[in-house]
Amino acid sequence: MTDICAGRVVVVTGAGRGLGRAHALAFAAEGAKVVVNDLGVGLDGAPAPGSPAELVAAEIRAAGGEAVAHGGDIATAKGAASLVEAALDHFGRLDTLVGNAGFLRDRMLVNLDEDDWDAVVRVHLKGHFLPLREAAAHWRAEAKAGRRPVARVVHTTSGAGLLGSVGQGNYAAAKAGIVGLTLVASAELARYGVQVNAIAPAARTRMTEQVFTGLEAAPEDVSPLVVWLGSAASEGVTGRVFEAEGGRITVMEGWRPGPTADKGARWTPAEAGEAARRLLGEAEVPGAVYGAG
């Protein structure tokens, strides 16, 4: 190992299993002190027995690293605040926040009820926003006190949020929201020494194994990029979205102006339609929605 994160304190949400667990272990292996957050719920967000966060923290400590478990609900203001406090109380600082917590409640849109929508958007989108807000407030205070941080945030979006995914309207909307949050945070927090990026991982976990049956890439394949983005070595990289699967890393390029027509005056509906069709003929064809026939 290279100790690329030696001396850094890293918080990973949803770190009891899957991708989060792999990230927590990878950061610890590179010298970081880790706050392992996991509420310990099932795939659908319902409570589950045991404390996966403590199991991962114990695994890190057994390997000679430093880690503490946090079992709070980071989609609440109290839970998010206690998450940052856990890093400061136990390790005296906070350098990197990795947002990863989430679960699925997949339904086709006509069968998707309000509770399933709210639950998924809450854990993914609100569960990214609240810890980010708490961490950002701490880093801003540090910067204003003359202790400019070398802070990093790594958010977890998804191909579903970038292209859409049939049967996952709630999840896709939340993950698309995380991209927007990432871009805003990158712009707003740069003055305080904070870099904010997002990854769209593809790996076989308990959350994806029923959705993408042919997916064989391991969560551990994604973690090296997350560790690098969470380290001081990623200086200058912010406001970006990366896709990671197996040994492949891709910089995702989002919305940007394409073919344009300007009449210089108001269009009629017929003229606007004619112009739109002409421009579509000149534009790149968007990627297919996951699961579309």
Rank of each mutant, 00 (worst) to 15 (best):
residue 2 T to K: 09
residue 5 C to D: 02
residue 7 G to F: 10
residue 14 G to W: 00
residue 15 A to P: 03
residue 15 A to L: 01
residue 20 G to Q: 09
residue 23 H to D: 04
residue 28 A to K: 01
residue 30 E to I: 09
residue 34 V to M: 12
residue 37 N to I: 02
residue 37 N to C: 04
residue 41 V to D: 00
residue 41 V to P: 01
residue 44 D to T: 14
residue 45 G to C: 03
residue 49 P to C: 08
residue 57 A to P: 07
residue 61 R to E: 08
residue 62 A to I: 11
residue 73 D to M: 04
residue 74 I to Q: 00
residue 76 T to H: 02
residue 81 A to W: 10
residue 83 L to M: 12
residue 87 A to G: 13
residue 90 H to M: 04
residue 92 G to I: 06
residue 99 G to R: 07
residue 103 F to I: 05
residue 107 R to M: 15
residue 112 L to V: 10
residue 115 D to K: 07
residue 118 D to P: 05
residue 121 V to S: 12
residue 122 R to V: 11
residue 125 L to H: 09
residue 128 H to W: 13
residue 130 L to E: 01
residue 132 L to H: 06
residue 137 A to I: 06
residue 139 W to E: 00
residue 149 P to K: 09
residue 156 T to G: 09
residue 156 T to V: 14
residue 158 S to F: 00
residue 162 L to F: 08
residue 167 G to L: 01
residue 179 V to K: 14
residue 185 A to I: 03
residue 186 S to L: 02
residue 193 G to H: 06
residue 195 Q to T: 14
residue 200 A to M: 14
residue 206 R to F: 03
residue 218 A to E: 14
residue 224 P to Q: 07
residue 240 R to L: 15
residue 242 F to V: 02
residue 244 A to I: 15
residue 251 V to T: 13
residue 253 E to F: 10
residue 255 W to D: 11
residue 259 P to T: 07
residue 269 P to F: 05
residue 275 A to N: 00
residue 283 A to P: 05
residue 288 A to G: 06
residue 290 Y to C: 11
